[in-house]
C-alpha cells in the first residue's frame, strides 16, 4: 500500500487527469446554473505537509466558506469546496442578484444557495470519477461552515492524520467569463481508497 508521498510521476499524472475530468464536469454544471462561461484553469494534485498546505491555501486565519461532503462505499474520503468571498459574490450575484461585503451579512437564503452550489459541484465531480473508474460511492448530505480557512483545511488532515503526515488533494481552480475565481474543489481520499482507485484505473 502506497502512502501519499510514495506515488510515482505516472500515478500522479493519472490523479491529475481525474482532477481535470472531475473539475471540468463541475465547471460545466456551474456554467449551466449561472448562465455564464465557467472553465477550469489548472487541475492539480498536491501532496503537502500540514503547514505547507496552510500556506498554499493562503494562510490560516482568512475567513472563508467551506462545504464538506463525506464519500463512502468503494472509496472513502472527504471532499471540500472552498469558496472565498469573490466566488461567493459571483454566485450570489448570478443566483439572487445581490452581493455581500462581509460574511457576517450573510442570510440563511444566501448560505443555502452556496451550499447547493457546493453540493452540485462536488456531486458532479464524484459522478465523473465513479463513471471513469467504474465504482459506486455514496455521498452524505453537505455541511457548510464559515470560519478560518486553516481550521477548515485541518478537517481532512485530522481525518487521515493517523495514517499520514501529508494532505493529498486532487482538484482545480475555475474561471468565469475569463476572470479567475478562487474557488477550490478538493478531494482527499484515504490511503486504502487511493490505492484501490489507482488499481481500478490500471496504474497500481
Amino acid at each position: 500500500m502506497k502512502n501519499y508521498d510514495e506515488l510515482s510521476v505516472m500515478e500522479i499524472d493519472v490523479l491529475r487527469e481525474i482532477g481535470s475530468i472531475g473539475t471540468g464536469n463541475a465547471a460545466g454544471a456551474l456554467s449551466k446554473l449561472l448562465g455564464r462561461t465557467v472553465k477550469i484553469t489548472l487541475p492539480e494534485v498536491r501532496i503537502m505537509g500540514y503547514n505547507e498546505a496552510i500556506d498554499w491555501i493562503g494562510g490560516p486565519e482568512p475567513i472563508t466558506t467551506g462545504i464538506l461532503v463525506r464519500i463512502s462505499g468503494q472509496i472513502n474520503g472527504l471532499m471540500l469546496d472552498v469558496q472565498p468571498l469573490d466566488f461567493v459574490n459571483l454566485i450570489l450575484e448570478c443566483m439572487l442578484g445581490e452581493t455581500i461585503n462581509d460574511y457576517q451579512e450573510m442570510t440563511e437564503l444566501q448560505s443555502s444557495a452556496l451550499m447547493e452550489i457546493g453540493n452540485i459541484m462536488i456531486s458532479t465531480f464524484i459522478n465523473a470519477l465513479s463513471d471513469l473508474a467504474g465504482i459506486s460511492v455514496e455521498l452524505t448530505v453537505p455541511s457548510l461552515v464559515i470560519d478560518m480557512q486553516g481550521a477548515i483545511l485541518a478537517v481532512p488532515m485530522a481525518e487521515f492524520g493517523g495514517q499520514t503526515d501529508y494532505l493529498m488533494t486532487i482538484g482545480g481552480n475555475f474561471s468565469c467569463d475569463n476572470r479567475e475565481v478562487s474557488c477550490r474543489l478538493l478531494l482527499s481520499p484515504d490511503i486504502r481508497s487511493l490505492n484501490f482507485l489507482l488499481g481500478k484505473l490500471g496504474v497500481d
Binding site: 463525506r70 452524505t140 455541511s143 461552515v145 470560519d147 481550521a151 485541518a154 478537517v155 485530522a158 481525518e159
Partner: peptide
C-alpha cells in the same frame, strides 16, 4: 477541540 462541520449520522468526523 471544536466540531467544525455538523455532519449527519454522527460519524467519526465530528468526534475528533
Amino acid at each position: 477541540g471544536a466540531k467544525m462541520f455538523e455532519t449527519a449520522g454522527g460519524d467519526s468526523l465530528g468526534n475528533i
